[in-house]
Design a protein around this nucleic acid. Structure first.
Lengths: 194, 194, 194, 194
DNA sequence: GATGAATGAGCCTTCATTCAT
DNA sequence: TATGAATGAAGGCTCATTCAT
């Protein structure tokens, strides 16, 4: 990752920015080529199709995210610490690679079922499995409230956290860290006063 | 609402279903016309443009949602009760009008800035304001934990709740009511065991 | 001519105004119907087609013009007086029925060859014939310079005069009468000083 | 002028012929593409829109005409000689580039006010100015009859001369030169015998 | 006379993709 | 690697016209 043929990486970077802001189907091959300073037909020397570009973007994102998640749950620490780290890593990703997160959030739903994008469903399944293990184990050892369906808890957290990419803007009234902190507090203890 | 000219309403219903499942830009005027049993050009007897169809769908949805929300906060009850009712109404809407919710979730981001869709930004702003009033008032009277930024709390809830439309399917292992119940518990008391 | 069924005449009047200002092919049946306060389909109770409307406008215009021209050349007076009267009548028509003149000038070229519009070519031929008689006769009796091809003289005058409809606007620096006067002087004696 | 990219020039030539004979709005992009032996969509590789084609045709015509006119009035010679040369150049243009003249005559009225076609009004204004200078100067030095409004004289000549494009056909009973000669005589000395 | 709904043909334009050079 | 030209399919939309009510 990173040793790519220069031009290819440039194009991926441009495509990522464009697709994140306009959506995949509204971003044309010409848009991408224009910003790369070449003709649209010339893109096909680097990628076999428009879909292949998206695939590459999503595959890299999914791979990295999964790898990080696996590393976290494999590390030392309590289930609660793991959960917090998973969440914190999500916020870190949103801060560092917002375009990829936006693309993932926007396009994954429609693409997941397309041929060639099976890795999306597979990855998502593995991620859910991995979170579920932490939550159920944490419920079993008394760390987490066990009246809540683990699957629902996972989706609750996942959706709340990753959705922040659509409105969080660095330089606003919150830093990524302060959003993370607030969210963790809500997640830990809820909204009701003690 | 309800007195519609029959054919128009039929077309809106078809368009709603199609746009919800394929996305606005991937749904063609021909798709809609085909399902309505007419030629694509004939759609323009009923609507001035494809965008006008989307506008009508979103406007109705936004209007109804806003009206319900206003009614809830204007009703008797504590801030906490109001918040719970707002959330429960969201889940009810997701159950009863999932296609409209899906469309709203998917298309609002890109459309909000388009001319003719100003009502989206206006409505969203009013909704945020209305939730914020409940949260801040509830913090002031001690019902809600006041260490959390009300705006972040609102977005946290909003994103977690409305996102369920993308994966909740009636007839699965959860009813809308049980999802609602689990989410409320998490929201109230958090994930950590007492 | 003139006793028409009210509604018909209204529609003809509207169509005349519209076609004069936008051109025949850019004026839609809907444009006309809108201004008449009816639906476009309802126009077909009055006219069998869009072309029929144009035909009626042009037929009336051609008929009136031809009738006037015939009356002039049949009246008492010298060839030169006749020629002046023909020209003056053209200016009068431009002042009183500019929309019809504009339509005639714009659409006649393309329409003349269409089936149903043979009256245009026929009328134009009769008009040319009628002018030519005056010019050749005037040349024969010494009133007109005979070094000029009569046919060219006719077209020269016709084109110069009728073209004024495209730029003459009442209320400007010239009245129709003063334009007529200037043109007659140029036509009589030319631009060169004596 | 002349270095054009081959294909582009071919297409412009085809479009010029077609638009001249059918009118701009009745000439379809398909018509043009068919004659060029390509698909209609392929035209957009060369031109950004149908309007852009018309714009290019008219811009070239206006530019050339204006340049010639400027050269004439800047040359040595009396006002009368200049005027005659202006007229003769118009006839030459009609003979050599009749399609462009036809398009200019037919479409300029409606297009002049469209965005992107401002050069038409600008050019027309400059041409009028340039003719007016000759006429008024010629009146001042006694060459031209000064009882005629120069503006009316200009329009009289302009309309009579350029209108010939609609009926002049080479190979008929007149050559362009003989039409030119007759018109000049009429313009110089009028129709009345001395 | 008019409405309301629809037809059918066609229009301009966009876009991913291909391929000879 | 890139260009330049083109394809082929489709897309949103317009418009004259028809016809049952």
């Amino acid at each position: 990752m990173g040793d790519g043929s220069g031009r290819r990486d440039e194009i991926i970077a441009i495509a990522t920015r464009l697709i994140a802001s306009r959506g995949y189907s509204s971003t044309t091959v010409r848009d991408i080529a224009d910003e790369a300073g070449i003709l649209s037909g010339s893109l096909y020397h680097h990628f076999s199709s428009k879909e292949a570009v998206l695939q590459e973007i999503l595959r890299a994102f999914m791979g990295d995210t999964l790898a990080h998640f696996e590393r976290i749950v494999a590390s030392e620490g309590s289930y609660r610490e793991h959960l917090d780290q998973l969440i914190e890593h999500a916020f870190l990703t949103i801060e560092q690679r917002p375009d990829e997160v936006r693309i993932y959030q926007n396009e994954t739903g429609f693409m997941m079922t397309q041929p060639g994008f099976e890795f999306l469903a597979d990855g998502a399944a593995r991620i859910e499995e991995l979170w579920l293990e932490q939550i159920t184990a944490g419920q079993a050892d008394g760390a987490f409230r066990d009246s809540v369906d683990p699957r629902l808890a996972f989706r609750f957290i996942r959706d709340a956290v990753w959705s922040t990419v659509f409105w969080y803007r660095p330089g606003g009234s919150h830093t990524a860290a302060s959003v993370s902190e607030n969210y963790l507090e809500l997640l830990h203890a809820g909204l009701l006063a003690d």
